[in-house]
Amino acid sequence: MDHFAKCFLILRLEGSRVEGGLQRAQGDGRGWRAVRVDLVSPPADRFAFTMLGWTGSRMFERDLRRFARLERRMLLDNHALFDKTKKEFLTAATEKDIFDHLGLEYIEPWQRNA
């Protein structure tokens, strides 16, 4: 886990508020659904790194970090991108900037599945 301010909570959604209704299991008489919500509040200059780190499958995140480390000699995490050859942190205003630093084509968040 990172050190950004965060809140993990579970919301109880009433069945009437769930689009398409609830898919009830046999014997389950609940009229509600529990949904986990993670709220993370990074500093503005780290927002792109946080967004990239919290979107996509675990395997996608691992592979992207492994690629950065082994192929580009960079360290990527939810906070920053560090270029080990230049010995400097690279800035990024958007997730696309991070992909550009890594020399990769941008992948939309909903396509980040490995």
Results as ranks from 00 to 15, higher is better:
M1G: 12
M1A: 08
M1H: 15
D2I: 05
K6W: 05
C7Q: 04
F8S: 12
F8L: 08
L11S: 11
R12W: 10
L13Y: 15
L13D: 10
E14C: 04
G15E: 11
S16Q: 12
V18F: 13
E19M: 10
G20M: 06
G21D: 05
L22H: 10
A25F: 15
Q26A: 15
D28I: 00
D28K: 01
G31E: 15
A34H: 07
A34D: 14
A34M: 13
V35E: 08
V35L: 10
R36Q: 15
V37P: 01
D38N: 11
D38V: 04
L39F: 13
P42C: 02
A44P: 01
D45T: 09
F47L: 13
F49P: 01
F49A: 06
T50R: 00
G53S: 11
W54Y: 15
R58W: 11
R58D: 12
M59G: 02
M59V: 14
M59F: 07
F60W: 14
R62W: 08
R65A: 07
R66K: 15
A68W: 03
A68S: 09
L70H: 15
L70P: 00
R72N: 04
L76A: 05
L76D: 10
N78Y: 13
H79V: 05
F82H: 13
D83T: 07
K84M: 15
E88M: 14
E88C: 11
E88D: 09
F89M: 06
A93V: 06
T94G: 05
E95G: 01
E95S: 03
F99H: 05
D100H: 07
H101I: 01
L102A: 04
G103F: 03
G103Y: 11
L104Q: 04
E105H: 03
Y106M: 00
Y106W: 11
P109C: 12
Q111T: 00
A114D: 13
